[in-house]
Each structure stands twice: as C-alpha cells, then as structure tokens.
Design a protein around this nucleic acid. Structure first.
Lengths: 213, 213
DNA sequence: GGTTACTTGCTTGTTGACAACAAGTATTCT
DNA sequence: AGAATACTTGTTGTCAACAAGCAAGTAACC
C-alpha cells in the first residue's frame, strides 16, 4: 500500500477527458464524504480518509475542497439543492395552510425516501450550533430561509382569509420550523424512538385546527 | 511567559487544604471551559487553553478531566444538575397539563436567567447529533428522560381525566420536547430572531387548547 | 499527424496544532 | 520525616493545511 499511487491506479482515470476525470473523482469523493460523515460524524471524518475511501490519494480531498469547511459546504450544498427541488415540486404555488402542510408532508416523505441525506444534512447543521463553527453560516442561512418561507405562507393565508386573524406569522413560522428541526434532532439521536408517520399526521391535524379561519 | 509555572504562581493556591485547592482549581477550570466553549465551540476549545485561561498549566485540564470527552461530561453534568433542580422546584408534584406548562415556563425563565448555561448545554447536545460523538450518549439520555417525563405527565393527565382521551402520550411528549429543543436551536443560531416570550405564551395557550379534556 | 509547450488533476513531503499519556516537581497530609 | 495528592513539563501520534512535484490531458506549431 506504500507503492506510489499514480492516477492510473484508479479505475477509468486514463483515456478520459479532463472533464470526465473530474466528474468521476468528484462523485466518488462526495459519496465517500457522506458515507464517512454518517459513520464517524464531522470530527471523526478526515480529509485523508475521504480521498482514500474514494480510491484516490490522501491529498485529493484537500485539493478538491480546499479545506474541511469547504468539504462541508459542498456536501451540504448538494443535499440542500436536492431537498429544495423536492420541496418546490411539492409546494408549487400553494400558500396558506396548504403550503405549510404540503411542505411538512414533503419533508416527511423525503426523510423516508432519503434518510441518509437528511441525516448528513442535520449532522452538519446541528454542528453549526457551535460558535465559530465553519458550518454555522450555512445552518443559519438554511433555517432563516425556512422561517421566512413559512412566514410568507402564513401571511398569504391571512391575506386570503384562510387563516384566522389572531395569529402572528413570525411566531407561527418559528414554531413550525422548530417543530420539524427538533423532531429531526430527536430522530437523529434515537431513530427507533420516533413514530415519524404518526407524529406527522398529528402535526398536520393540529396545524389545521390551530390556524383555520 | 516561558518561566516554569509552579502552583504558587496561582493566586490562593498556597496555604490552603488540598480540598480547598481542588475546589478552587475545579471552579476556575469549569468557568474557563464554559467561557471558551461559548467563544469557540467544542472544536475550537483546547484542553491547554482551558488550563491556561484558568490560571494553571496547559496540562491541568487533561489531568483533571482525563480527556476532552470527560471535560464535556463534567460541564454538561454540572449544568444539567442545575436545570434539573430548577425544573423540580417549578413542577413539584404537578401532573397533566399543569406540569407540561410549568415545565415549559421554567425553561423559559431559565433561558432568561442563565442564558449562557443553556447555550453551552445545547452547544454540547447538538454536537451529539454526530455519530461516534463523545457527547452523543449524554444527549441521548437527556432527551430520552425529557420525553419520558413529558409522557408521564400526559399519562397522569389522561388518568385523572384532565386531558382529552384521543391523544397519544408518546406522540405528544415527543412533540413537546421537539418544540423546545428546536426553538432553542434556532435561538442559538440567531439569538435576536426569536421573541422567546411571545412564542412561549403562544405555546402554552396552544398546549392547553389542544390537550384540555 | 507528430513533436513540444502548457494546463490541469492528482500525489507526496512537511509543518504546526492538539489530545493523550508518561514522568517529573511542588504542596499538603499524617 | 515520608506518603499522598495536586499540578507541570516532555513527548508521541494524528490531522489539517500547504507546498512542491509528477502525470495525464490539451493545444500550438511544424
């Protein structure tokens, strides 16, 4: 294993265009990174291990992502894009209570369909609770946007009269996001302890009861 | 600064009993640890920095806590004990909806009164979202107990007839804890963004509406 | 279409920071 | 006094980050 590792050691890295080489290594690196974060968390994941797990050298991860922070940025950006598309497809042009409920359902389905991505994403985001953490900005931005979305939905519902007048959009939005984030956190800690589907149905029902005009 | 640092360099470390020496250093170390975790997070806090901030050598933190994991255990244990006493004082022998509401209010007051302790505690707990994290077990245990407490309160309320019959204690308990944890997380990320008092009042009201028999 | 210059992808060498531990010194206790 | 405990200093191994180099691909020119 100490023999010099040339690019040709790696499957399919010769006779390809540069673009193909990068695409291949990039995918392998991101897959390896996600797998290692799931196994060992952020701290336990080393840049060297990512490169080697992906079938390259210990140095490639640093070269590709620049730093550990860059790696986390890349990974979270990828997953977030996926979730964002999924959410938009589910919510579309809805607003008011329907938008809130559809978004919650979309999250519920996403968790069932891509549990690993959600796990990785939240491992990263909860790491952002630490000050000076490299992912803090990412987490902040993600949650701010979620709250802003929810707030907008509630405001639209108020404007159209489908939501009762005595609620505060900002407060509802914060509670809505907190509910989902908190539940996901508990699930992350103790996957078997949470009956996600039951709680989700409960939540949807309560939301409608509480907000309906 | 490179001169040998003997214990007598430290204020009040000579002419005291061993017990007093330990008590003094222990307090200084824990204070330093909390301050540094608040400033730099878990990753950014080094055992050496804790010792030196506390006015001792770079080695004392390792000697005292055994390892970084041991340090976190100690810090979280201390804060948790404080919160636990605070909670018991507030909830007492209450059960049912009153217990849930009083516990939520106690948390609200604790956050206002000891924001730094809550910040540190949750920085540690959210770090537990990472697998193989040293604090994972602590976080798991803490949240399990919170859910169990809430579940018991709901069950008592069901038994005494003060809570409506069609709710699932486990589901309610999980949502209750998720609400508080999620809200705290968002507050940790963006302290100014959350109107804690308003949301708390909202929450209490909703809780009563939703659970009252 | 073949040789040469250049660019880009990737690897290896090295440094500094830090946790962890071992071995030492200082202070108190009996 | 010496034993025990509190604390400090020396050292090792791991890892992120960076620097320097090698190899494969691409383009310019003949």
């Amino acid at each position: 294993m100490t023999q010099p590792k040339t690019a040709s050691t790696v499957q399919n890295s010769v006779g390809k265009t540069q673009a193909q080489r990068v695409a291949a290594s990039d995918k392998a690196m991101l897959d390896a990174a996600m797998a290692l974060i799931l196994e060992n968390g952020m701290d336990g994941t080393t840049l060297a291990a990512i490169g080697e797990r992906a079938g390259y050298s210990r140095g490639l991860a640093t070269y590709r992502f620049g730093s550990k922070a860059g790696l986390f940025r890349e990974v979270s950006g990828n997953i977030q894009r996926h979730w964002s598309d999924y959410l938009n497809a589910a919510v579309g042009q809805d607003s008011g209570i329907d938008a809130l409920c559809n978004a919650a359902s979309a999250f519920h389905h996403f968790v069932l369909e891509f549990p690993q991505e959600i796990r990785v994403l939240h491992i990263l985001y909860y790491g952002g609770a630490s000050p000076n953490s490299d992912v803090r900005g990412l987490a902040k931005q993600a949650f701010s946007r979620q709250v802003a979305d929810a707030e907008r939905w509630v405001e639209d519902g108020l404007a159209s009269g489908s939501i009762r007048k005595d609620v505060d959009p900002r407060s509802i939005a914060a509670q809505y996001v907190a509910h989902i984030a908190g539940l996901t956190y508990i699930w992350l800690l103790n996957p078997g302890d949470i009956d996600f589907t039951r709680i989700h149905q409960d939540f949807i029902r309560t939301l409608r009861e509480r907000l309906a005009a």
